[in-house]
């Protein structure tokens, strides 16, 4: 039995748990905790350790999806999580420009730990407050070759598209190296 993993990362509340939940065949074993600090009280629960989803590919291959905790004080986990990953998804909450800078910095941090392919998911595109994709690309300063994919983490088809785009990038990377 072989296992491979992909990591879903991004700022607090960007939709990482939701994303993994949308495609995982097991209930995401998230280590959620009620939020205590006032500043972060925009939602009830946050992920404190990591999310963990599974997709069985066939009898001898399993894909695990790991979600990083969103809050900054759990930075120490990222290095461990990123080891040996196939690629990663950076989730961005398109409705909250106050998180863009952090999204960019998470992206750069992960890129430094692991030079594997990645895609950026512009999440919550179903919300009226969402920034348009073209504006997000500039705001996050993503080079044209980096995939920025519109996403609604509550919709499985959208989540599938993001994962497929990441896999296509991984395949393309193999061809060139």
């Amino acid at each position: 039995m072989q296992t491979v993993k992909m990591v879903v990362t991004g700022p607090f509340n960007s939709g990482k748990t939701q994303f993994i939940q949308a495609v995982s065949e097991i209930d995401v074993v998230s280590t959620e905790r009620r939020i205590t600090s006032e500043a972060e009280r925009i939602k009830e629960n946050t992920t404190v350790a990591m999310d963990f989803g599974r997709i069985t590919v066939d009898a001898d291959l399993v894909l695990y999806l790991f979600g990083t905790p969103g809050q900054k004080r759990f930075d120490f986990m990222w290095e461990i999580l990123s080891e040996g990953m196939l690629g990663f998804v950076v989730m961005v909450d398109s409705t909250r420009p106050e998180t863009f800078r952090e999204a960019k910095s998470i992206l750069e941090t992960f890129r430094a730990y692991a030079p594997t392919p990645y895609v950026v998911a512009a999440n919550k595109q179903d919300n009226d407050e969402a920034w348009p994709i073209e504006d997000l690309r500039i705001a996050l300063r993503l080079a044209p070759e980096i995939k920025l994919i519109p996403c609604v983490a509550t919709e499985r088809e959208k989540v599938k598209t993001v994962l497929l785009e990441l896999l296509y990038s991984i395949l393309a990377e193999m061809e060139t190296s």
Partner: peptide, 16 residues
């Protein structure tokens, strides 16, 4: 082998 593995993943996710 690595390519084959990624292609299996792609096929599986498409079928979800």
């Amino acid at each position: 082998a690595a390519r084959g593995l990624v292609n299996r993943l792609i096929a599986r996710i498409r079928s979800l």
